[in-house]
Amino acid sequence: MTGPTRSLRTWSIADAGRRRLNEYEIVTKKFHYHFGRQPAPFDLDPDSPINQWYLRHREGSPVQADSWEEFSDPAQLNYRRYIALQHDREIYAERVVDRFEALDHDAGLDPAWVAVLGRVYLPARFALHVLQITSLYVGQLAPSAAITNASFFQAADELRALQWIAYRAKSLSLSHGPDLADSTVARRVWEQDPAWQPARELLENLLLAYDWAEAFTALDLVVKPAFDALFKQAFAALATANRDELTAQLLHESGVDSGRGQDWTGALARYILAARPGNREHILGWESRWQPRVTRAIDALAGTFGAAPAPADAASVRQTVDQATTQFRNSWLTAVPAT
């Protein structure tokens, strides 16, 4: 047998210097061979549309780093670990639903509260869908597989949250009327209700943020933290106040995903700020461009919380959101000294 003459102990192109790579590193590092390739990322004509798209929105982004490969997802999630984690979390979520369904929880809800759910909670699936597909965009344009994969898993997290809302829409409709499970009704709220319009304007515009780093900043540092705080904290608290513990607990459960999301997006933001002196200015520039729209969106939605039987005033909702987003912002911004 004229086999190979030597054996290898690790990837020849991802040698960590006498350190055994862990499973995450083995299946993540150096996967984006196409980033920065000459004359173009992909083996079609360099001027073909998608080569040009990547050259403009990825290689051409104002935010750059010397080696994107140095960034790792703090949770070190590869597919296998993500799936195992979420398998456990879904079992938990199913048990939550089981428990409340056994108590016929929905039937006991105040119709005035169900109306709030119909106006705020159920149409939120449109917003989550935008977060889902924008995460897929960030993932496909990201300069390293660590960012791509984390962003793809995040997209799946949004789909998870969205599907539980769809589940709840149907189950609520069984005791509170078929309109709740009518997409046309939810879509009308999303498209026409004044409380949703600033959010819709923001999210429709988010889909047009094509520079990958702007998309990351807008989605992960500005828009999503605010929406997550609004729904998974402020609205969950409102649900509890209105004796809808099922909604509250499902939102909290989804909040676990959001926390994991902030771990990697915060870490990436810190990495970006430290990578090159100019990056800070771009990130903060984008942040200041997107923040006013987010503020308007949150304000308009916060106004609906007052219609609940046990209401919350808009100011306190805003405060909850501000507190959460400021805390997250500090975690990546103030951790890095300005240069």
Partner: peptide, 11 residues
């Protein structure tokens, strides 16, 4: 309900 989510863009 989780897939009937196209809408008409307004902005």
């Amino acid at each position: 309900l989780a897939r009937d989510m196209n809408w008409t863009f307004g902005y």
